[in-house]
Design a protein around this nucleic acid. Structure first.
Length: 489
RNA sequence: GGCGGCGUAGCCAAGCGGCUAAGGCACUGGUCUGCAAAACCAUGAUUCAGCGGUUCAAAUCCGCUCGCCGCCUCCA
């Protein structure tokens, strides 16, 4: 089985084959750090976290580089507004980024280079481009000569003429051609700057990724990723710079994920319709956000809403409830009892991993993968419900193996990673804090109600249940006793 | 204006030429229960925005129309 990935460059799903057998080299554009991260950033981090986890699950070695842009116009502007340095501001929000990532359980990439720590590599790269006449200095700036690179536009599928026709490009008299883009910017007084052969200045945005990816992954590497909004101009320009400098293909496979939208509009800082990661985590368990994000295939738009988050939470709870009920199975089964699981349910469970891989191999179809988890949980619930007091060894093994496999597969998406009991208990505690009744009171009332039930005093029993219901507490009677949960709206 | 994507049950969402169109949420009926809840079982699209075409066969390929979204400027 091989992994198929949609490649932006060819606009097709292709069978993925790393350049070096068993070792995947991946570069992803990280954040520009000048503010808190929003859910769109979370989707990016989580999408590639999932992709890397899946490759590692398949036993690939993955070298994963994700950069920080810690110098650019917006950082300079924001630092000036806040009366601080670009360095302090950028580092502060890198720290905040890690706070969010750690809460979300995002694995750290292999390396996270910062732009400001690779100025020399960028100057070297720009120098090579000038030597090849692919770039030219002008009044302290350096520009890339777009017209000299034959492949310009191949990633974003644009023709140079079309771009010029509808272009909204600022007039800049330093440029030979309006489409040329900046590699090095002369600094204005007071701005952070670095020495260069062309005078004091700072790098343009696109050159940093070309320089850092080359340093850590080489001239040509397997996968380059980012959001769909980076295709043009950022990735188009990176490709132009790197291929012109190295005379080699830059990247084999380009992966671009879709946006998070709100009311079907792109969430972005410029539109102001964004929610930060910490806004969400204040109200939802991190796994709920992960579950929500993976409920749609990574390339499709994902519309954020409270209803969608509630939906995700209900689904996640259901899976945890299933795992918890398997955990409750005590001891070993009996070798003498007959197995009651149906052939169909046995197949559902034993084929789970194979079906999961098939889904994931098809361009990381996490939506389908979640469906497979639900089908498996359903089969488990069904078997448990039919179980005798002395369950058969075969059934117990099937259930425990099924639950173990669910947890293992879910780990690719970073969900179901808590002990089911702990997750459900923590949830209960969190919910208790929102209502005006203590657990002791609840348990006392349940005790009273069970006494009433023993006396068949149904009026009293129902009154207590209604009383608890007025506090949003729902009761669950079972042979094992009476449990309770917080009612969903 | 140029380029790209999407339109599948009440909502979310798989499916990418051929098994009864996954799965989740919601709804309804049943089993269970003193009654409930949870769980389980069952039910829901003769049909995939519309219209044509290709094919023995199309939600899936092609064309046109309608609607929505994104990129073309910093943006995950």
């Amino acid at each position: 089985m091989s992994v198929k990935i949609y490649n932006t460059l060819t606009r097709k799903k292709e069978t993925f084959q790393p350049l070096e057998t068993g070792h995947i080299k991946l570069y992803v554009c990280g954040i520009t750090s000048y503010d808190y991260c929003h859910i769109g950033h979370a989707r990016s981090a989580l999408a590639f976290d999932m992709i890397v986890r899946y490759f590692r699950y398949l036993d690939y070695k993955v070298t994963y580089i994700r950069n920080f842009t810690d110098i650019d116009d917006k950082i300079i502007k924001r630092a000036a507004e806040q009366n601080t340095t670009t360095e302090e501001l950028a580092n502060r929000f890198i720290d905040e980024f890690y706070v969010d990532m750690d809460k979300l359980g995002v694995d750290r990439p292999t390396m996270e280079p910062k732009a400001t720590e690779h100025i020399q590599e960028m100057i070297d790269l720009i120098g090579e481009l000038i030597d090849k006449d692919m770039a030219y200095p002008a009044n302290g700036d350096v520009y890339y000569r777009v017209g000299s690179f034959a492949g310009y536009g191949k990633l974003s599928g644009r023709k140079l003429e079309d771009m010029q026709a509808g272009a909204r490009i600022q007039i800049n008299e330093n440029k030979d051609d309006p489409m040329d883009f900046v590699l090095w910017k002369a600094s204005k007084p007071g701005e952070p700057s670095w020495e260069s052969p062309w005078g004091d200045g700072r790098p343009g945005w696109h050159i940093e990724c070309s320089a850092m990816s080359r340093k850590y992954l080489g001239d040509t590497f397997d996968i380059h990723g980012g959001g769909q909004d980076l295709i043009f101009p950022h990735h188009e320009n990176e490709l132009a710079q790197s291929e012109a400098a190295n005379n080699k293909p830059y990247v084999n496979m380009w992966i671009h994920h879709g946006f998070v939208t709100i009311r079907d509009e792109k969430m972005s800082k410029s539109l102001g319709n964004f929610l930060t990661i910490r806004d969400i985590l204040a109200h939802y368990h991190p796994e709920v956000l992960r579950f929500f994000i993976f409920s749609t295939q990574y390339r499709n738009p994902l519309d954020f809403s409270e209803a969608a988050m509630q939906n995700a939470m209900t689904g996640l709870d259901r899976l945890y409830e299933c795992l918890a009920s398997v955990d409750k199975l005590s001891g070993d089964g009996s070798p003498d009892t007959k197995q009651i699981a149906s052939a169909k349910d046995i197949t559902k469970l034993t084929s789970m991993e194979e079906r999961f891989q098939k889904a994931m191999n098809n361009d990381f179809n996490t939506a389908l993968a979640q469906g497979i988890l639900f089908e498996s949980a359903k089969a488990i619930n069904k078997i448990i419900r039919q179980l005798d007091k002395q369950p058969s060894q075969k059934d117990v093994d099937l259930l425990k193996d099924g639950a173990t496999t669910i947890v293992k597969l879910a780990s690719v998406m970073g969900i179901l990673q808590e002990k089911a009991h702990d997750y459900l208990a923590a949830k209960k505690t969190a919910m208790l804090n929102q209502i005006e009744i203590s657990e002791e009171e609840i348990l006392q009332l349940i005790k009273e109600r069970n006494q009433a039930r023993d006396e068949k005093n149904w009026a009293r029993s129902d009154a207590i249940r209604d009383q608890l219901l007025s506090h949003n507490i729902e009761l669950k009677d079972s042979s094992a006793g009476t449990g309770w949960t917080i009612k969903k709206d």
